[in-house]
């Protein structure tokens, strides 16, 4: 199966953008819930880089047993869900009193989510290499440019314009688009069309209800409102 180079680069760009974006959003939630923006960003970035590597190592082990496209399909499902639900889940589990005992368990769970996103993202580049073997250099370039774009877009555009909750939902919908593209290769055009309409509508709704979505995150943070 051959792929148009433009699609390969665009998909790589989107995937890299989404992965680092999720991590920045998680770092933001961790900084709000635990405190210490500087420390949380440092921890998240190093855990992300580490788990990214671990993901590519594990991909090397499972590659002979599974089809690349299917691996990528599952990775995108996983990333869409973890990215979409991550900020809400993290805010909730890090609220005092939700977990009995100290803060060690919820914090470990929160950092595990950070590792999970990095680990799943680690599969993406080797998958893209395998889907288009002759374009490794350019795929890598698209990957790094995607990460650069995320690091600029998150603090300068998404966070001030949409807030944490809606930003991460918009980006998760981008991730979902890649999932649809991978499904469309099987020739399910109607399904793809319906999916695209659903994604577009969800994106519009997310933008319209951005205040409510961020309020939901606030309620999870505060618990019962006085």
């Amino acid at each position: 199966m051959t792929f148009q180079p433009f699609f390969i680069y665009a998909v790589t760009f989107i995937l890299a953008f989404c992965s680092l974006f999720y991590e920045f959003a998680f770092a933001q939630v961790l900084a709000v819930s635990i405190g210490g923006t500087k420390i949380q960003y440092l921890i998240v970035i190093s855990l992300f880089t580490f788990s990214l590597g671990m993901g590519s190592l594990v991909y090397g082990k499972i590659k002979p047993r599974a089809e690349t496209r299917k691996i990528l399909l599952w990775v995108e499902i996983g990333l869409t869900f973890v990215g979409l639900l991550g900020p809400f889940a993290l805010t909730w589990i890090l609220r005092p009193g939700v977990f009995p005992g100290g803060s060690a368990m919820p914090q470990a769970l929160a950092y595990f989510t950070v590792i999970l996103v990095g680990f799943l993202s680690g599969f993406e580049i080797p998958c893209m290499f395998d889907l288009s073997p002759s374009r490794n250099g350019r795929i890598l370039a698209a990957d790094y440019v995607g990460m650069l774009a995320a690091s600029i877009a998150f603090p300068l555009f998404f966070l001030p314009v949409f807030g944490t909750a809606s930003s991460v939902m918009i980006v998760a919908l981008f991730n979902c688009t890649v999932f649809l593209w991978l499904r469309s290769i099987e020739g399910r055009h109607w399904e793809t069309m319906i999916g695209l309409v659903a994604i577009f509508s969800s994106m519009i709704l997310t933008i319209i209800f951005r205040a409510e979505l961020n309020e939901l995150l606030s309620s999870l943070y505060l618990g019962v409102d006085p």
Binding site: K38, G137, A141, L148, I152, F154, L156, L159
Partner: peptide, 24 residues
């Protein structure tokens, strides 16, 4: 803090990528 961290990580990763292309 957020802006400074983000704008350090992005160019670092970009440099990492271009550097590895050169190394190759």
């Amino acid at each position: 803090e957020v802006l400074t961290q983000c704008l350090a990580v992005g160019p670092y990763l970009l440099g990492l990528g271009l550097g590895s292309v050169y190394g190759d």
